[in-house]
Design a protein around this nucleic acid. Structure first.
Length: 826
RNA sequence: GCCCGGGUAGGCAAACUGGCAAAGCCCGCGCUCUUAAAAGGCGCUGCCCCUCGGGGCGUUGCGGGUUCGAAUCCCGCCCCGGGCACCA
């Protein structure tokens, strides 16, 4: 007997889609554009092309494709493009090892990815494909950089920055995970370097507020971004050093504890440290300490709970609220990058200050009384971070600290010693990298004119060819001397090009805009296209991008909107984050040897089975464990459907009002339509949607023999089979088309999504559940509209019920119409 | 330490607003088709009893509570996963 042969079926349909450009969608004004259809922009995060696509890619695009197909058949004009995040370190590191140009390796990977995506049958408008490493693309990355530069949103600055000694480049804060380089895991150190930044901090509040503009984002992603931005309200307070006639502002979230400040600490990187120690006789000790602190890795310095260290400066500052002189210290627990790089230390009410005071024998003064009488009987209950009445705080004594908080800020403001302030954990985005394989920064340095932007007309500034890609602390581009030497666009004098390249996250912060007008060589995009398609209606990707990519892209869109190039404030109104696939319960990795290659499974079981399985494993937002048996199970299910397609005749029998088993099957088909539609549209419950199609197929098998002789039954079997094919199409598009065409003769993607007929969902009777004391005792068929009394009568008539009620008193009768009766007996 | 998720048959899971716990898939077992095997089809798959119609009991990490009724709500605890963590 003939068997389900996914390879033949899949290549056949892929050829049709390829030849006919089935998934191409025109822009407004182009031939074929249908203004009557609502648009839907369905987008999966673009892949970084390296080696082979892995299961994570398969999952990402299987989910996205299901949504794209579903929306198309529900009347939307769906844009579903694909591209490659093609600049970056892996290709460059390979180039360093092999000497092969990163472009060559990248293009090879792209070709491989593209081919595999085709073999998966993903419904992409391939005319819109982009790769971020192409000059036609990065020309516009540079153009955006210049727009931000003009606005002061891109700037160059010397600052202590995170440096990866292995990759020999600086990193953004977001790329440092637990003090290690996100890419290679090397411990990161701090260096003072002049670097390029994007002023994302200017957008901190809008990045927070505009969560309100989103429709559906996972709560945890919003929380992660919120924490990352880390908005804190408090006050800025100035402490004065009389000897030096200098003010030292601090940021504090607890101005109410100001009277408890007993010492003052500055960060080792504090710019006024040298001024402070000059002439104190403590210079050597302080410098030794600072040198030590700066040699440490960020992880070492940042470790919570480590022993507090520091050195006294031999200086004092005056507390503005009580005029008290308090000693100054330098300590590495104070970070230059947060607040002002200096703190007032309140050891009674801050854990870190408390630890420091203990180590250094400094006074600890309680200024807020605890409210909990039981607290900390065996010690003084300090540090205490809670609320309570003020004490040892002069005229604020006896007041509640929340009240004092406001009054102290008012007082500071009136005295000119401070003000209300907001601080953020978020730092500006460090975007320059001392690496080769990235987008060149379109800036030149002129001895006379300083920093000069490259005029738009000279874009793109193409990457020069070099012989050696190895990073040596400065960008490999610096070796391309002919390229570096240029003329100043402003004065035509000699000038040098910027040799750093951009972080690849810059490339991926706007790619979703380029898809909309990918071949435009006069602008990054045309407004009509962008205004039509934006925002992305459904974005799908891995949770690992919760902060980095998703926050950067939000920032870019807001900045571009402010510049007047875009009409939306948020790029992605709906976000779905998929869970990670494991193997034997463990994360897949080459070192563990538990990776699986999608192409193996596509070869053995077909793309449809691999895709459907991955959507069937469990809730897609959660992870799941890949098993061969699971794929085989789905393959079996698809085979059963395929066999129906072979065996169910395309004609014969006549449609008539179904009865008996035919009616049962008809109902099951409509139940499945309803279930699948709701599961996909509402909750991304793809696994239960697929289970519903499985139920329908099982039901067809159960009933079809009995319906073979029944003329009306034939039509119902045919309907049920085409319905199953139609419903499975978003997950297994090739098989869906195959079965649908065999039985119905038409192309499933050209017909609308199946519609539920309500009358097949409703029944005349329902199974009434009868409980006695909450325990299930009987099930009785009851008329659908039966009222309370009718249901109670039915319930009591049941023999099983009588057995449990006899000789007992019914004390309560609970009736849920259409569902159950519960009799409480004693 | 803080903030989120989550814990349901042997495994993955399902259960809309509190209302029949366990749909679907896998594993396992039995039957069937076949010369045979594979593939396929059918059935079973918490425990106990059965005269084979069915009947009884139990059950959602642990302990308590609310309720006629709890996987679902509340309180306390245990375990697993993720995020943040010297951010003043």
């Amino acid at each position: 007997m003939e068997r389900y042969d996914p390879r033949a079926i899949e290549s056949r349909w892929q050829a049709v889609w390829e030849r006919e450009g089935t998934w191409q969608v025109p822009n407004p004004g182009e031939p074929g554009f249908d203004p009557s259809k609502p648009k839907s922009y369905v987008l999966e995060m673009l892949p970084y092309p390296s080696g082979d696509p892995h299961v994570g890619h398969l999952k990402n695009y299987a989910i996205g494709d299901a949504i794209a197909h579903f929306r198309r058949r529900n009347g939307f004009q769906v844009l579903h493009p694909m591209g490659y995040d093609a600049f970056g370190l892996p290709a460059e590191n390979a180039a360093i090892r092999t000497g092969e140009h990163p472009r060559v390796a990248t293009e090879r990977s792209i070709a491989n990815f593209r081919e595999q995506f085709h073999s998966w049958g993903i419904s992409i408008d391939w005319r819109r494909e982009v790769a971020t490493c192409e000059p036609e693309y990065y020309r516009w990355t540079q153009w955006i950089f210049l727009r931000l530069y003009e606005r002061g949103l891109a700037y160059r600055n010397e600052a202590p920055v995170k440096w990866c000694p292995k990759d020999q480049t600086v990193l953004a804060n977001e790329q440092v995970i637990d003090g290690r380089c996100e890419r290679c895991g090397t411990l990161v150190v701090e260096r003072d370097l002049e670097q390029w930044f994007f002023r994302i901090t200017e957008y901190a509040d809008r990045l927070l507020e505009d969560f309100g503009l989103l429709e559906s984002w996972p709560e945890n992603v919003i929380t992660m971004q919120r924490n990352w931005i880390g908005r804190s309200e408090g006050a800025r307070v100035s402490f004065r050093c009389d000897e030096l006639d200098l003010d030292f502002p601090v940021f504090t979230t607890r101005p109410d504890t100001l009277f408890g400040a007993t010492f003052f600490v500055v960060a080792p990187e504090h710019p006024q440290l040298e001024t402070l120690i000059a002439g104190t006789g403590r210079e050597a000790e302080v410098r030794d300490y600072v040198a030590l602190a700066r040699k440490e890795t960020t992880a070492e310095r940042g470790a919570a709970g480590r022993e507090k260290t520091g050195v006294a400066l031999g200086r004092a500052v005056r507390n503005p609220v009580n005029g008290e002189e308090i000693p100054m210290f330098v300590a590495d627990y104070v970070l230059m990058e947060y607040g002002t790089g200096a703190i007032m230390a309140v050891p009674a009410h801050d854990e870190r200050d408390h630890a420091f005071a203990r180590s250094f024998g400094l006074p600890i003064r309680r200024v807020i009384e605890g409210t909990d009488p039981d607290q900390a009987r065996d010690d003084d209950g300090l540090p205490y971070a809670g609320d309570g009445k003020m004490t040892a705080s002069g005229r604020f004594d006896g007041k509640h600290n929340r009240e004092a908080y406001e009054e102290i800020i008012s007082w500071l403001t009136a005295e000119g010693r401070g003000e209300r302030a907001v601080n953020y954990r978020l730092r500006d985005w460090l975007l320059s990298r001392q690496r080769y394989w990235g987008c060149p920064i379109p800036i030149v340095y002129c001895d006379d004119c300083g920093l000069v932007a490259v005029p738009d007309g000279e874009l793109p500034i193409e990457l020069p060819e070099v012989d050696d890609y190895a990073p040596r602390g400065q960008s490999p581009l610096a070796a391309a001397t002919d390229w570096v030497q240029t003329t100043c666009p402003s004065c035509a004098g000699p000038a040098r090009r910027e040799t750093d390249t951009m972080d690849t996250f810059v490339d991926s912060s706007w790619y979703f805009l380029r898809y909309l007008d990918p071949h435009n060589d006069r602008a990054a995009w045309g407004r009509e296209a962008v205004d039509h398609w934006m925002p992305v209606d459904q974005y799908i990707g891995g949770i690992e991008h919760a902060i980095l990519h998703l926050m950067y892209a939000r920032f870019f869109v807001k900045a571009l909107a402010d510049i007047g190039e875009l009409g939306v404030q948020e790029p992605f109104v709906n976000l779905f984050t998929q869970g990670m696939i494991t193997r034997d319960g463990a994360k897949m990795s080459k070192s563990k040897g538990n990776t699986i290659s999608p192409s193996d499974y596509v070869d053995r079981f077909g793309a449809d089975a691999a895709r459907t399985f991955i959507c069937f494993m469990g809730p897609p937002e959660k992870g799941g464990d890949w098993t061969d048996e699971g794929v085989e199970g789905v393959h079996r299910f698809l085979s059963r459907l395929w066999r129906l397609g072979m065996e169910v005749p395309g004609d014969g029998g006549e449609a008539q009002e179904p009865e008996g088993n035919a009616l049962e099957l008809m109902r099951k088909a409509h139940w499945a339509i309803d279930k699948v539609t709701r599961d996909i549209a509402q909750d991304f419950q793809l696994h239960t949607a697929i289970a519903a199609v499985m139920e329908l197929v099982n039901e067809i098998y159960r009933l079809r023999d009995g319906l073979a002789e029944d003329p009306g039954g034939q039509a119902v079997v045919r309907f049920a089979t085409t319905t199953a094919a139609s419903l499975i199409f978003p997950f297994a598009p090739h098989l869906g088309c195959e079965v649908f065409e065999r039985v119905d003769g038409t192309r499933v993607w050209e017909v609308p999504w199946p519609q539920v007929e309500q009358r097949y969902l409703e029944r005349d009777t329902f199974t009434l559940v009868v409980q006695i004391n909450g325990k299930l005792r009987a099930q009785v068929e009851a008329p659908a509209g039966a009222d309370r009394d009718a249901l109670l009568t039915l319930a009591r008539e049941s023999e099983a019920v009588a057995r449990h009620v006899d000789g007992k008193e019914i004390v309560k009768e609970i009736v849920v119409p259409g569902k159950l009766v519960n009799l409480v007996v004693r």
